[in-house]
Design a protein around this nucleic acid. Structure first.
Lengths: 216, 216
DNA sequence: TTTATATCGGTATGTCAATAGCGATATTTT
DNA sequence: AAAATATCGCTATTGACATACCGATATAAA
């Protein structure tokens, strides 16, 4: 039999739970800023419009023991979720493709919350290389391998045109990148061990436009 | 009993299927451009790196009968999926919040593929109002209700700072919008009948950063 | 003409996550 | 000190989707 004193935290968190963690985290941050010392799953669920059981299970997954009638200790819960997301340590990333979207991401201030900082940007176009966008200097693609290795960067942000998607992904992989945040519509093929997270606006829009056109 | 001559298309398509449709559609378009007249689910699955059964089921959901040993008729399948997504008729949308992200979306050329055109843009800041960004004139928020009603616009794109998210969503709803494409991190509360599709970069990044930090 | 085969279409099974229900317990109230 | 209650934490059920399997059929090959 198992000792039941210790809280059993599963080795792998459910993917949907991980996706919801940023939402919880923002809510918890607000509550801490408002002076709360304890976080009740019921209150969080109410604020976010989620089922109370779902919120309780998600928060319990963080591994911090809560107390009946009080909730979870706020700072500990915050720290646990932040750690689960890997946002407790600053992460450097490189951005490839300084078009309009890459430009917007370079200017996005919200990444600080996720401890993400774009350490360098690259582009193939000679007209853009050399310019400084939102404080980041745009470098030629040739500099990518050396810089990624020197700074030990593990995350690449891919914001190039579709045609350049796979070739640039290959370059990132060859340079030693571990994860690619893919903003192109191309289905990247990468070796095992490299993680790709797709942000396909068309997929997101599909759900919305289908629903709107279907309900008429 | 049921007549079985007609292909039974389910009234509601599974959400994951809808999300995959844009991916299939791009693949089908390429194959048509390459001169194919028939689309085999096995070939599509191979190209996209999906399970062949999954692709077959998804394509079958479109309601177009396929032929053994040939596949689905290319143009008909293309038309059916396009219609299922509501991309067969041009859809006008309004964009609220012309910051860096709103700017990038206004300049994004890929929306034509989805028959989406941004008919008008709005912003609260007097410095931006009146300017023309990528061919679209930025109007003051006060003009929103009248213009949405006059052009009978059903889709709103929300790219304002988090603090303005809910108020602006309320204005869109009051103007008669049916769906909101929400790029803020705020969980919007809207009345029944209005659909919200969230594009939360933090949620997407969460999966990636968790995986990268966990596997070390 | 006959045989072989690729692909479709439906049914059954398995897996994962969301929901529901219930007991345990610490805090608050009386 | 005793009773009431809110909240946690566990287990079971439900439901949806992905996967596996199998029969039907039109095309291609022999």
């Amino acid at each position: 039999m198992n000792e039941k004193n210790q809280l059993a935290r599963p080795l792998a968190l459910p993917l949907p739970t991980i996706r919801r963690y940023p939402v919880y985290l923002r809510c918890i941050n607000e509550m801490i800023a408002a002076g709360e010392t304890h976080i009740s799953s019921a209150v969080v669920a109410e604020k976010l419009g989620l089922d109370s059981v779902l919120a309780r299970k998600d928060l319990a997954m963080a591994g911090v023991p809560g107390k009946p009638r009080r909730g979870y200790p706020a700072r500990e819960l915050q720290a646990a979720i932040t750690a689960a997301l890997g946002w407790d340590n600053s992460t450097d990333a490189v951005l490839v493709g300084v078009g309009s979207l890459g430009n917007a991401l370079l200017g996005y201030r919200g990444f600080e919350e996720q401890s993400l900082s774009i350490a360098a940007a690259f582009d193939a176009s000679p007209e853009i290389v050399g310019k400084t966008i939102h404080g980041v200097k745009v470098r030629p693609m040739g500099d990518l391998p050396r810089l990624v290795k020197r700074l030990n960067i593990r995350l690449g942000i891919l914001t190039v045109p579709n045609a350049a998607g796979q070739p640039c992904a290959d370059k990132l992989v060859a340079a030693g990148i571990r994860g690619i945040w893919n903003f192109t519509s191309v289905r990247l093929s990468v070796p095992d061990g490299v993680i790709v997270q797709n942000v396909d606006l068309a997929q997101s829009l599909a759900v919305l436009s289908h629903a709107i056109s279907a309900k008429r």
